[in-house]
Simulated assay, not measured.
Amino acid sequence: MTLKELECSWIDGFPKPMIIAGPCSAESEQQMMETAERIKKNNMGVSVFRAGIWKPRTKPGSFEGVGAIGLEWLKKVKTEFGFKTATEVANSYHTSAALDADVDVLWIGARSTVNPFTVQEIAEALEGTDKIVLVKNPVNPDLSLWVGAFERLLAQGIKKLGAIHRGFSTYRKTEYRNIPNWQIALDFKNQYPNIPMFVDPSHICGNRTGLYRVAQEALNLNYEGIMIETHCLPDKAWSDASQQITPENLAEIISCLKVRNSNISGYEEDLERHRMLISDIDFQIIELLSERMKISEKIGSIKQKNNIAIFQPDRWKIITQYAQMKADETGMNKEFIEKIFKAVHEESVEVQNKIMTHKP
């Protein structure tokens, strides 16, 4: 069986969107029980209560989770409030302990997904399990690495699989803690539409203000679920306090979310007309880019003949200033326009490089 042949009908047993919510970290039995109680009291449609038992941290000395004792608190949450439970596993010990504690949903974190050896260790510890296993995207934007993690799990007979889109690390300063880079998640959905996709707005945003927007954007893209962090006292949380919200705030967000209809019946003609216009414009863009690269070839020839370096900082400065000016004039997103110009410039450099390195 391949990933494309996998039937992930397990998601049909949950409401859409399937919501997994709870604190970033289990800190105490009281914190876990109070958070769960307030989630239950607000009747917000949360199906699974999550809590980090072991926390992989960037630097040593940070709070790295309470350890196995937290699994007992998860059991108590399940017994008293009826939630299914979820936690992250990062090695075979975590996995075995979580399975022994009858945790219903296990997820592999972004720092683990990036390491095939770690994923293989976890997959072997999970061999043949009937539990739901979710895989977060790797910290770096590498689709094949993400897919590879699923292939390792499937090879061990694990069939109740799902993906979590939690954003990607970047060196650039942005409004996000981890940039969404939606296209990578959409590429995954296009290749494997049978595998449910969750969004993790808490880790994408890294703050409380953007949570609703990111969650709704994911539902607009037909994601099946949401994993979000909520804490009874978020300002006093031991980890990632800035991105956690109270159960009451969570209830407000959930009440505003709208699940989109994927059925386009009745709108085909309207959509097709606009899609045809887009296709025509796309063709024109490709033609213009082709013409632009031909000019870059001529520029490359001039630079080769006169022994001129390809990269000219003053020219690049003019291009970026022009891009920002045109973005302002057209009301378009500056970051989007800058990305386009950077991509075109990089290709132009590549075209000129081929000419400059060609042996006569």
Rank of each mutant, 00 (worst) to 15 (best):
E5F: 06
E5R: 10
L6G: 10
L6P: 07
G13W: 08
P15S: 13
M18L: 15
G22C: 08
E27N: 01
Q31S: 07
Q31H: 05
E34P: 00
I39P: 01
M44K: 01
V46D: 00
S47L: 06
P56R: 04
R57P: 08
T58C: 07
K59E: 15
I69Q: 14
G70W: 00
W73P: 01
T79H: 08
E80P: 07
F81Q: 05
F83C: 02
K84R: 15
T85N: 11
E88V: 04
E88L: 04
A90P: 00
A90L: 11
N91W: 09
S92R: 13
L99H: 07
D102G: 04
W107F: 15
W107S: 02
I108N: 01
S112R: 01
V114I: 13
V119F: 05
E121K: 11
L126Y: 09
L126F: 10
G128H: 10
K131Y: 06
K131N: 15
K131F: 05
L134D: 01
N140T: 13
P141I: 05
D142W: 03
S144Y: 11
G148T: 12
A149W: 02
F150L: 07
L153P: 02
Q156F: 05
K159N: 14
K160T: 08
R166D: 04
Y171R: 10
W182L: 08
A185Q: 00
F188S: 07
F188V: 07
K189G: 05
P193C: 07
I195P: 03
P196V: 04
P196H: 04
D200A: 06
P201C: 02
C205K: 03
G206C: 08
Y212E: 06
L221I: 03
G225E: 01
I228M: 03
T230S: 13
P234F: 03
P234D: 07
A237M: 03
S242K: 12
P247R: 01
E248M: 00
K258Q: 15
V259P: 01
S262M: 11
I264G: 10
Y267A: 14
D270N: 12
E272P: 04
L277S: 13
S279L: 09
E287A: 12
L288C: 10
L288M: 12
E291H: 08
R292E: 11
K294Y: 05
I295P: 00
E297F: 02
E297R: 09
S301V: 06
K303F: 09
N307A: 13
I308W: 08
I308Y: 09
A309E: 12
A309G: 03
I310E: 06
F311S: 09
P313K: 09
I318E: 15
I319W: 06
I319L: 13
I319M: 13
T320E: 14
A323K: 04
Q324Y: 09
D328M: 12
D328N: 15
T330W: 10
G331Y: 09
G331L: 09
N333M: 10
I337H: 05
K339C: 14
V344R: 06
E346K: 14
E350Q: 12
K354V: 10
P360D: 14
